[in-house]
Structures are given as structure tokens and as C-alpha cells.
Design a protein around this nucleic acid. Structure first.
Lengths: 250, 250
DNA sequence: CGTAATGATACCACTTTCATACCACTGATT
DNA sequence: AATCAGTGGTATGAAAGTGGTATCATTACG
């Protein structure tokens, strides 16, 4: 039997001794399940917010909160006056290859970004090497200060070939969201991690002392065809970010 | 029957005899067990601090102390005004783990190991927590200094339950070889990486200045049945070692 | 005697949830 | 073209529950 939205929601109700999840999160999971199991094909309209609220005995605020999250994730699309629809191009949710924003959201922290620089320019020789581009090609440069719950956590310098994203302003919060929307979400990445001492400039941005330890991460992300879509150098405050990895195999 | 949080807590109470852990440590272990045995799936809410305190006849201060530790470990997430939740793990999957020895060889460096300590002792509370052992159990402790071309590169402290390997001298070169020979080769490991400043002792061993940045890696390796067979804390000189990881999505 | 663990209590800030109401837009009907 | 029912977008207020924090008292231990 095909899962229904209402059935999915009620199924998630069982919680044993644990307090149930928050209603809007439960509903959100229910909708997401229904979509991923195919109960709602792409383009299909969801019941209206008022209908959902009434049928599930929830308030419209709660329903909107659930839907809102999925809209932000690109799973749903809303059109003012028309309705809520399953997005045509569903961005595969990558459980493992995630960017900073997803990481923080998964941890329940509020991500915030302050742009220090956002512009277009010509590649430097080093960038050309890292991105595998020809000299003279254009790239987008981003320099971002990242906050978690309003505490500075990392400075990040990102270089993206202009051939991938032409308009720097298309990147609002998450680079990976922007890449996903144009179907260029990377499937593989190489990271290089090391510990360094913070320089004066970066230390000031991160509101800690010069020379304090930081985690430096360089990442090159690849598409299926091998093109590099991103080269990012990040400095994470050593006392504020842990990198957790799960290893498999024998 | 699935373990429950309250059941877990009371079970730990019966440890009885002379050695009863502090209440907040016991509760902390109980919660951790409940999570790791799946009683609380990721994303689900714990009972509120007030509920826990009331049901377990503890004060809220004690409950908060227990929860606080797990939050710091990244196992739980708290949101002001919302509740306490089992953290969704940020998992980076390393498909190819560049082992220490192989990596050095690839760089044309000669690896060498010097044992600083190798013996049996009783677990400390922290180790008991990491290895999920009862207080008073015996463990093997290894402390090794790793060199590349005769320059110190890392200090490594490893703890293995004596229940797994009884004789410390059975471990000659590679811990994983020794584990494999008795059929206890781990299939899964969790690593935690962060940047720290070196303390005086470790700095001296690594022949660099106190306070210089280092890469701290904690690793817990698991068997199929979930038992922890190894807990290792490594400190790599920040200026001498890069950690390279390959990430996969989809 | 001091310290640490624990308990009891109170208050604050925040989130969730509900109940309304009204606005702005869409699409189809008239 | 005008209308209208249904949609999402926004705002308000209120109640209940949550974690965050502080204070003070009690107990156990060295």
C-alpha cells in the first residue's frame, strides 16, 4: 500500500517514553517521506495549508512551518495564490557530502553569513591550478565570515569558475543550494585538513587571539564529469568546531 | 525489549557494591546507552529537564550536568525554548583513509615509532565513558611517539579494554594487526578532529613551542556489535602533517 | 574548614502552538 | 472586464512548555 500523507504523519507519532518530536518537524518528515516514496509526484499539488491544518488538527502556523522548511530545502515550491507543489527537480539530499550551512542546521545551530567580498575576477595562477582552469578564465570570489548562533566560527574564501555560476549574487546563504538549483551539485570532494596558528587579520575576524589554533580546510569539489566547481579555503576556530568523520571498511 | 532511558538509569544504579558513580555520570551513561542502542533516534526529543528530574528523583541541576556533557560531546543538541534533541550526526565518509604509515611512505619519509608507555591499569572516568566500560574495569594503555625521518610528528595515546586484549605486549607494531589476529578487527570508527594549542609536555615531545597549533584526533573504533575496542587520542604537529580526506555524496 | 555534588526554588528568554484576522495573488467563471 | 472562491503571505495576541541562569541550602568528604 502506498503511504499517504496523513498515515505517514500518524505513524511518526509513536514515540514511546520519549517526548514526541515537535509537531512541525513530524509533519515535515511525513511530507518528505510521502514525496520520496512517490505518493506525490513532481509537480503535484499538496493539499492547501488550511486543509492540512484541519485534517491533522494542527494550526496553520504549524503547517506553514513544516512546509517552509521543505521549501527552503528545495523539495517544495509555493506560488502565492496558487498553491504548494512538489518541486520539479528534486535535489537529491546528500547525507554525506554537505556544506557548512547544512552541517550547522543538522546540529540545530542558526547559521549566519556575512559577506566580506563577492565579486568576479580573473584567476590567479594558483587558483587556475586548483580549479584546473586555463589562465585568463574568470572566477567568482567569495569571502565569507560564518557565524553559528551569532558567534563567529569561520572565515571562508571560495573560488567558483564563472563558467559554472556567472552571477555572484545568485549565492545567498549556501553555495551548495545555489549549485543544486542549477544541477551542479558536486558528488565528490577532496579535503585537506591541518592545524595552523591564526594570523592577526583572521584572528580579529574570528574574535580570538592572534596565534590561537585553527583548523584549516582546503576543499576541492568535483562534478561527475570531473570538472572542479569549487575551491574553498576555510579557517575554523579551533575551540568552536569539530570535524566528525565516520570511517568504514576493513 | 528495547532499552528505555529510565530502565537504563536504574540498571546502572544496581552497580551497587562500594563503587557507585556520581549521579550525573550515571545519568549521562544511561542517556548515551539509550541513544546508542536506538531508543532515541536522531532528531527525536528527550524528555524535558524538568520531566527527567521529576521521574528520576533528581534535581534539575544534576540532570543539566548530565545533559551538558553529552551536548559538549555533540551527541545531543539543545535549543533554547524548544527542547533537547538527539543530534543528527555530521558524517563525513572517508572512503579511502590514508593510513599513517602508508601516507608517510608515499611522501618518501621513513616512519618510526617509539613506545613511551605500555601497560595495564584501571580506567579513568573519562576513558570509561569513551569506551563504555564500567568503572573499575582494566584497560591497556599505549603511548607512542611517531617519527617521520627521525623528526617527531605525533604523540598517540591509545586505550584498549583488557577484555579485548589482555597482554599489552601482544601489540608490537600495529594495533589493528593485533586486533585482527583475535578476530576483533573494528568495522567502523568515529573520528573527531579539531585544532588545539599544544601543552608544555606534548610540545616538548614534539620538539616545538608550547602553544603551537596541533591537529587533535580522537578516534573510537567499534565492532559489529557496537562494542568499543579502541580509543585513541592523537596530536599531530600542525606544521608537519596534513590530513587528506575524500568525501562522497549521493 | 573548604570544596564538590546535589537539591529546591525562582525568574527570564525563547519556541512552539493555537486562534484570528486581514491582505494579495491566482484562476476560473460570469 | 468584473467577480469570486480559494490560495499563500503576514501580522497579532495569548498560553504553555522549554532551556538558561542565578541564588541559597543541604549533604558528603577529605
Amino acid at each position: 500500500m502506498q503511504p499517504t500523507l496523513y498515515g505517514e504523519y500518524r505513524k511518526l507519532d509513536r514515540g514511546g517514553e520519549a517526548r514526541r518530536s515537535l509537531a512541525y518537524l513530524r509533519l515535515r518528515r511525513a511530507i518528505q517521506n510521502a514525496i520520496e516514496f512517490g505518493a506525490f509526484p513532481p509537480g503535484h499539488a499538496l493539499p492547501s495549508e488550511r486543509d492540512l491544518a484541519k485534517k491533522l488538527a494542527l494550526s496553520r502556523v504549524t503547517v506553514r512551518k513544516a512546509i517552509g522548511g521543505l521549501v527552503e530545502d528545495g523539495l517544495l515550491t509555493q506560488r502565492h495564490g496558487a498553491g504548494t507543489f512538489v518541486a520539479e527537480r528534486i535535489v537529491k539530499s546528500f547525507s554525506r557530502l554537505t556544506g557548512f550551512t547544512d552541517d550547522l542546521r543538522a546540529r540545530g545551530l542558526k547559521p549566519r553569513v556575512k559577506f566580506l567580498e563577492r565579486g568576479v575576477g580573473e584567476v590567479t595562477p594558483e587558483e587556475a591550478m586548483a580549479l584546473n582552469l586555463s589562465p585568463g578564465a574568470d572566477v567568482i570570489r567569495l569571502r565569507r565570515l560564518r557565524f553559528a548562533d551569532d558567534k563567529p566560527l569561520a572565515v571562508e574564501a571560495t573560488v567558483v569558475p564563472a563558467a559554472v555560476i556567472a552571477d555572484p549574487n545568485a549565492i545567498k546563504l549556501s553555495l551548495y543550494d545555489a549549485l543544486g538549483q542549477i544541477g551542479c551539485r558536486p558528488t565528490r570532494a577532496l579535503q585537506r585538513l591541518r592545524a595552523i596558528a591564526l594570523g592577526a587579520d583572521d584572528a580579529e575576524l574570528l574574535e580570538c587571539d592572534t596565534g590561537s589554533p585553527a583548523l584549516a580546510i582546503e576543499r576541492r569539489a568535483f562534478l561527475d564529469d570531473g570538472r572542479v566547481v569549487e575551491f574553498t579555503t576555510s579557517l575554523y576556530r579551533g575551540d568552536a568546531y569539530d570535524f566528525v568523520a565516520e570511517l568504514h571498511g576493513g
